[in-house]
Amino acid sequence: MEKPLKKDLTQVPSRRSQIISAGLAPLRQLKAPRALSRTNPEAVIPAIDAKWYRLAGFDSAIVSMNDGTSAALYRRDPELYRSLLKRTLDLHARFAQQWPQAGPAVP
């Protein structure tokens, strides 16, 4: 990140804040990642704090494993998101066309 992180990663956000984050997270996928996130991780997050509402705010982050022996690099990929979203929408449309229509119950 170009500026230091101001959020406390150990504090659990309120329920309202989590709902807002859940609504805005898919929209964030449509934006291009920040330039520095491609070369440098934006945060180092301990495994115990690696929740969806924390990771959703970063374009890249290093997350330690529970046992502390290794870590994983998480990187947001908007192109992969778009392709998976398109596939999901196509499958749902296909299921809706092919699903048998519910008719009246026959005794």
Score class of each variant (00 low, 15 high):
M1S: 06
E2G: 02
E2N: 03
E2I: 01
E2Q: 08
P4I: 03
P4F: 06
L5K: 00
D8P: 03
L9P: 01
V12P: 13
V12Q: 15
P13D: 08
P13L: 04
S14T: 14
R15G: 01
R16S: 10
R16T: 10
S17P: 00
S17V: 00
S17Q: 04
I19V: 07
I20A: 04
I20M: 04
S21P: 00
S21F: 02
A22W: 00
G23W: 04
G23A: 11
A25D: 13
P26A: 06
P26W: 08
L27E: 11
R28Q: 14
R28M: 07
R28W: 09
Q29L: 03
L30T: 10
K31F: 12
A32F: 02
R34T: 12
R34P: 02
R34F: 02
R34V: 04
R34D: 13
A35S: 09
S37L: 07
R38N: 02
T39I: 05
N40W: 01
N40P: 00
N40L: 01
V44Q: 01
V44R: 01
P46R: 07
P46A: 13
I48V: 15
I48T: 15
D49I: 09
D49T: 12
A50P: 05
R54W: 13
L55V: 11
L55W: 07
A56G: 08
A56F: 02
F58H: 13
F58P: 11
F58K: 09
F58C: 08
I62V: 08
V63I: 13
V63G: 11
S64I: 04
S64D: 13
N66D: 15
N66T: 12
G68F: 06
G68L: 06
T69M: 08
S70G: 15
S70V: 09
L73Y: 01
L73T: 01
R75V: 10
R76A: 10
R76G: 05
R76F: 05
R76C: 08
D77C: 03
D77M: 00
D77F: 00
E79P: 00
E79M: 02
Y81N: 11
Y81V: 03
Y81L: 04
R82W: 05
R82Q: 07
S83T: 11
L84V: 13
L84Q: 15
L84T: 14
L85R: 15
K86F: 13
R87I: 06
R87V: 05
R87L: 13
T88A: 15
T88L: 15
D90P: 07
D90K: 14
L91T: 01
H92F: 10
H92Y: 14
F95D: 09
A96S: 11
A96D: 13
Q97M: 02
Q97A: 07
Q97N: 02
Q97S: 05
Q97P: 00
W99M: 03
P100Y: 05
P100Q: 10
P100H: 03
Q101P: 02
A102P: 01
A102R: 05
G103T: 12
G103A: 07
G103W: 04
P104S: 14
P104Y: 12
A105L: 09
A105S: 10
V106I: 11
V106S: 10
V106N: 10
